[in-house]
Each structure stands twice: as structure tokens, then as C-alpha cells.
């Protein structure tokens, strides 16, 4: 009997130790990530000024010039264009599914959202090459009087928009579900139409949550790599319009991993871009998660 007791105590203890180790690992992971990237980008930061790296568009690795501006501007173009497309669609769909549609429709949409969220990035890229790129070069471009190969900022943004829709939509539906029914009923009983209720009561109440959803979408879009890389054209020039090719930061990192060890400072420059990416995404995430947490507390 005593033996069993000891055995059980021992097992309990060892489980406890392993759990503690695991949770410490998980908590330290972001710190490891940041330190690793900072150490690796040290060489380039010690020879160049940080601001000159960020705000110079001169990208000539062979002569040691690593200006990231072109890539940062491209990233911003693609990200904001995709949000511009995805956010209204998500908002309208979320309102429809939670306020107007019958319950079975919401239930039926869940697998659609889940599958969209589960499709790998590279499949989105293939789809972009199959459908979006030809669409832009054959129909949309000529219709607007532009000659284009289709591999453009717009193509990247369209593919990206579809990719982040499930992500944003999920959060928006969750946010709208938390609005208490009593509020809605009060507005309706005062004679407001359903749309007026949505517009003046629900959207107002849910605004911080919805904004956070969009901002999480931004951070997701900013870091997306393969799908965008496949359709965006990858030309090292600051895009001047949506029908121009772009070259976002993640694509830069992914495209050049092969040669980065053969050119001095190249790897350091790429690690710096990864660090910039990490910092931007973390910032957006931090802001929106904190907003969501506060919002949940208010409910």
C-alpha cells in the first residue's frame, strides 16, 4: 500500500515538474524569438543606422546597401488594400449572420469559415495564379485601360483578402454575439427598424471589438508569405499603383534565404527584416488583444 502511495506521489510530482518546465518554455518563447533575431541583426545595426535602413530605398546587397523602404511600402500597400476589401465584406456578413439570417445559416457557415481558414497558404497562391492573375491581366486591367501581367499588388491584396476573411469574420461573429439581446429589444421597442438598431445600437456597442478584429486581420495580413509571394510580382521598386508589381517584406525573406549566406551582411539584413516584421505584428496584436480584453471586461 505504501509503495503505491509513494508511486502516486512520485508520478504527481514528476507531472508537476514537466508541466512547470513546459509552461516556462512557452512563456520564454517570445523572448527567445526576439533575442535570437536581435542578436542576428546586430552586425548590420552596428554598421548602419537603424533609421537609414528603414527609410532608404537603396537595395544593393552586393555593394552593402540594404534599404528596406521598398519592401516596407510594398507590404503596407498589400496589407491595407486587402483589409479594405476584406473588412467591409466581413462586417456585412457578420451582421447578416448574427442579426438577420436564420440560425441554420450561421451553423452552415461555420464549416465554410473553418475550411477557408484551414486551406494552406500555398494553395491560396496556386489559386491566385490560376484565377486572380489571369483575371487581372485579361479582364480587369484592360477594362481600366492598364496593361499588366497580372502579377500585381492588387493580385496579392485580393488573395490576401480571401485568406484573412475567415480570420476576421470569426472574431467579428464572436464580438457581435456578446451584445446583449436586451439592448436590441429596447431599441426595437422604441420603434427603430432592425437596420436602425444595428446601425445605432449594435455597431456602436461592438465598435471596439470590431476594430480589434480588423487590426488582428492587419497583423495576419502583414506577415503572410508564400501566397503573396507567388502572385505579387516581386520587383524591387516602390509600387506607384495597384497595377504595379510589389515586393513585400516576407517575400524578400523567403526569396533570398538561399543566397543570404554567400553575401556579407545579407543574412543580417534579412534577419533585421524578420525582426521588423515581428515587431510590427506584435505591436498590432498587443494593441488589439488588449482592447479585446478590456472590452470583454466591460461586458
Amino acid at each position: 500500500m505504501k509503495f503505491f502511495l509513494l508511486n502516486r506521489r512520485f508520478r504527481d510530482k514528476s507531472h508537476f515538474i514537466w508541466m512547470t518546465i513546459s509552461i516556462i518554455l512557452v512563456i520564454l518563447l517570445p523572448i527567445f524569438l526576439a533575442t535570437g533575431l536581435i542578436i542576428k541583426s546586430q552586425p548590420i545595426l552596428s554598421t548602419n543606422e537603424f533609421s537609414s535602413l528603414l527609410f532608404s530605398s537603396e537595395w544593393k546587397p552586393l555593394s552593402g546597401k540594404f534599404g528596406l523602404l521598398t519592401f516596407i511600402v510594398s507590404s503596407l500597400w498589400v496589407t491595407f488594400l486587402s483589409i479594405l476589401i476584406a473588412a467591409p465584406i466581413c462586417l456585412l456578413t457578420a451582421i447578416y449572420l448574427t442579426q438577420y439570417a436564420r440560425r441554420y445559416l450561421l451553423r452552415a457557415m461555420h464549416p465554410v469559415i473553418d475550411i477557408l481558414a484551414g486551406i494552406p497558404s500555398v494553395i491560396y497562391g496556386v489559386w491566385g495564379i490560376l484565377v486572380i492573375v489571369p483575371f487581372i491581366s485579361n479582364y480587369l486591367g484592360p477594362a481600366l485601360g492598364k496593361e499588366t501581367s497580372g502579377y500585381t499588388v492588387l493580385a496579392g491584396a485580393l488573395v490576401l483578402a480571401v485568406m484573412i476573411i475567415p480570420f476576421i469574420l470569426n472574431i467579428m461573429i464572436e464580438v457581435l454575439k456578446t451584445i446583449p439581446d436586451a439592448l436590441k429589444e429596447a431599441a426595437l421597442s422604441l420603434g427603430a427598424t432592425q437596420w436602425q438598431t444595428v446601425k445605432r445600437v449594435i455597431l456602436k456597442k461592438a465598435f471596439p471589438g470590431l476594430l480589434s478584429a480588423v487590426s488582428l486581420g492587419i497583423s495576419r495580413a502583414f506577415g503572410e508569405t508564400i501566397a503573396v509571394l507567388m502572385v505579387v510580382g516581386n520587383v524591387t521598386r516602390i509600387p506607384s499603383g495597384v497595377f504595379e508589381p510589389g515586393y513585400p517584406l516576407p517575400a524578400l525573406i523567403a526569396n533570398n534565404y538561399g543566397e543570404m549566406l554567400s553575401i556579407p551582411m545579407y543574412d543580417s539584413a534579412l534577419m533585421l527584416s524578420a525582426l521588423v516584421l515581428f515587431a510590427v505584428v506584435l505591436l498590432f496584436n498587443l494593441a488589439s488583444r488588449m482592447a479585446i480584453a478590456r472590452y470583454e471586461k466591460l461586458q
Partner: peptide, 23 residues
């Protein structure tokens, strides 16, 4: 901890790739 995990969830996979490479 949940907050930390949510932050980590948002980090793009290419950043993990770059980190894995340095490791």
C-alpha cells in the same frame, strides 16, 4: 499566459522560420 499565447499565435510563420534558422 493566454495573452502571451495569443500574441505568439499572431506571429507569422516566416518569423519562426528565420528564428529556426538562427537556432
Amino acid at each position: 499566459v493566454r495573452f502571451f499565447l495569443d500574441l505568439l499565435w499572431g506571429v507569422p510563420s516566416i518569423v519562426y522560420g528565420a528564428f529556426g534558422f538562427t537556432l
